[in-house]
Structure formats: structure tokens, C-alpha cells
């Protein structure tokens, strides 16, 4: 301890050192992140917004936005919204039911950790392989289709089902939507204290009344938040749909994909407007969530 001057960072050390010679660690450390966000998030988005309001000659125009009103584009948006909405809502409800079953239903603890691990895998098992799996399951030669026909005498496809349809795609999307819901909502369900349900019971409430007045209202903001996330997740998805149906299904991501590949709309401005519309719809889903959650969360810090 005789050589205290050798200790860096002592009071004298920092006070005598000229301020300018200190490396501005803070700024240097955050700079890559900012640069990255600008290059890969802000600029591309701004460029698309700009393009959406620009005509071929480079002049400002609303024509591209107006062009979104064309029948094919509107119906593409509409199918996308319906599939995303249905798969998000069903995924959220089923995911919540499963989460409640494993956490509140007092199923064995190993089962719970198995479900969580599997959810981690399944929520990432999206895209092309998922489409392959569902073709092998519910396609015309899929195992379930064949078993239903040969063992139960039920012809799935003659009854009107088609994997390449609205319900087929929704059913497929649920394979990653439900696990995602489970992963995100589980901490919120864990946060429901046992004492709350006990206190409600002591005050005469039935289990149903507990969920009606306490449990579900507390989960509601998390539920809504996850719902909007699931919606955006399905709305922007393309790989599964592409691998299932090729370019046959008229959803907005397939339309945009074709536009990027080969200017299928024959108007780059219209393509940008299409992309802008997608951002607006997913943002709207988030804004609805924020507004509703903000009202529902008055009781939170």
C-alpha cells in the first residue's frame, strides 16, 4: 500500500488527467448500435416511405397509395389480415389455455419444463421445414389424411379441407403461434400470486369469479401485447406460405415477394406503397395494443 499513486482511477488520477485525453467509451460503445439501427432499420424504412409517394419521374404523388385500392391488392391484404388475425387469436387463446393448464392446473413439474423447452423449439420451427411437415401430415398423401380415409373412412379433402386454403394455412401457422404465446405469457401467469386466488376464495368468490374479476383482468395487457406480436409475426410471414403453395396463394407477402423478384405489379412505387401498407397495419396492431393496454394498466407502475 506504499505506492498508492500507482493505483489508477484514484481521485488525484482522474482530477489531474486532462479531460480530452479520456477515451469517450460511452459514445464509442453505443455508436455501432446507432449506426446499425440507422443503416438497417431507419433508412430502409424511410426509403420505402419516400418511394411510396414518388412516381416514375421522381415527382411527389398519391397515385401509388390510390393504387392500393385495386381489387387484387385489397383482397391480398384482406386474406393476410384474416389469416394473421385468426392464427393470432386462436394461437393466443389456445396458448393461454395450455399455459394455465400446465401452471395453474398443477400438472407435474417435469411436464412443465418439457412444454417450455418444446415451445422454444416449435416457436422457431417456422418457415420452410414447417410447411414440409404439414404437407407430410395433412397434404393429400399425408399420414393423417391417409389414416382418416383408410381407418375412419373420412375423406378430408372431399369434405372441403385444403391445406393450401385459409384454414389450412391458419392451422399450420398455429404450430409456431401457440408456442410463442406460451413462452411469452408464462411469466405473466407465473406472476399471478397464489394468495390472490386464496384471498378471493376467502371472500366467497368461486374459481370462475376469481378469473372473471382478478385473474383475467391482470393477464389482459400481457395477452393483448402478445396478440399484437403474434399478429405481426403471421402477417409478415412468407416462407411457410411460399413453400406450401408457391405463388398461388394471394396473400400480401407473396404479392410483395413477387414484386421484389420481378416487378410483378409493374410499378415500383406501388410495391413501396404495398410495403408501407404492411408497416401501417402491423403498427396499427401495436398502437391498438398500446392504447388498450394503457387503459387496462392504470393499476401498474
Amino acid at each position: 500500500m506504499d505506492d498508492i499513486e500507482a493505483w489508477p482511477g484514484t481521485m488525484t488520477d482522474t482530477n489531474t488527467a486532462p479531460h480530452s485525453r479520456r477515451i469517450p467509451w460511452d459514445a464509442l460503445a453505443v455508436a455501432p448500435f446507432i449506426v446499425f439501427a440507422v443503416m438497417f432499420l431507419f433508412l430502409p424504412t424511410l426509403s420505402l416511405i419516400g418511394a411510396a409517394f414518388t412516381d416514375r419521374q421522381g415527382h411527389f404523388t398519391f397515385d401509388n397509395i390510390v393504387g392500393l385500392g385495386a381489387g387484387q391488392i385489397v383482397s391480398a391484404y384482406w386474406i393476410s389480415i384474416r389469416i394473421s388475425g385468426a392464427s393470432a387469436l386462436l394461437g393466443a387463446l389456445i396458448g393461454l389455455a395450455i399455459t394455465l393448464a400446465i401452471i395453474r392446473g398443477r400438472l407435474p413439474a417435469p411436464l412443465r419444463s418439457a412444454v417450455m423447452t418444446f415451445s422454444g423449439v416449435a416457436s422457431n420451427f417456422a418457415g420452410v421445414p414447417l410447411a414440409f411437415a404439414f404437407i407430410a401430415t395433412l397434404g393429400r398423401l399425408g399420414l393423417v389424411t391417409i389414416i382418416l380415409r383408410t381407418v375412419f373412412g373420412f375423406d378430408l379433402y372431399r369434405s372441403g379441407f385444403n391445406l393450401l386454403s385459409f384454414w389450412g394455412l391458419t392451422l399450420t401457422y398455429l404450430y409456431f403461434q401457440i408456442p410463442l404465446m406460451i413462452l411469452i405469457i408464462a411469466p405473466a401467469v407465473d406472476g399471478l400470486k397464489k394468495e390472490w386466488s386464496e384471498a378471493a376464495q376467502m371472500l366467497g368468490a368461486s374459481p370462475w369469479q376469481f378469473w372473471r374479476y382478478i385473474g383475467l383482468p391482470i393477464l389482459w395487457p400481457s395477452f393483448l401485447g402478445t396478440l399484437s406480436l403474434l399478429f405481426a409475426n403471421a402477417f409478415g410471414a412468407i416462407a411457410t406460405a411460399w413453400a406450401l403453395t408457391g405463388s398461388n396463394l394471394n396473400i400480401v407477402t407473396v404479392l410483395l415477394y413477387n414484386q421484389i423478384r420481378g416487378d410483378a405489379l409493374q410499378n415500383p412505387g406501388l410495391g413501396a406503397a404495398l410495403a408501407l401498407g404492411m408497416i401501417l397495419i402491423t403498427s396499427l396492431a401495436n398502437i391498438i395494443y398500446l392504447v388498450v393496454a394503457n387503459r387496462a394498466e392504470r393499476w401498474m407502475k
Partner: peptide, 19 residues
Amino acid sequence: PNQRQLGMVFQAYALFPNL
């Protein structure tokens, strides 16, 4: 429990946070 007409106070308050 909900038929016993008893009152209970818990260690960690257990107030309903949403009410």
C-alpha cells in the same frame, strides 16, 4: 374456502393489484 365465511389477511398483503 369460499363457503366458510371467514376473513383472512396474508403475509404479503395479497391485494388485488387491478382493483
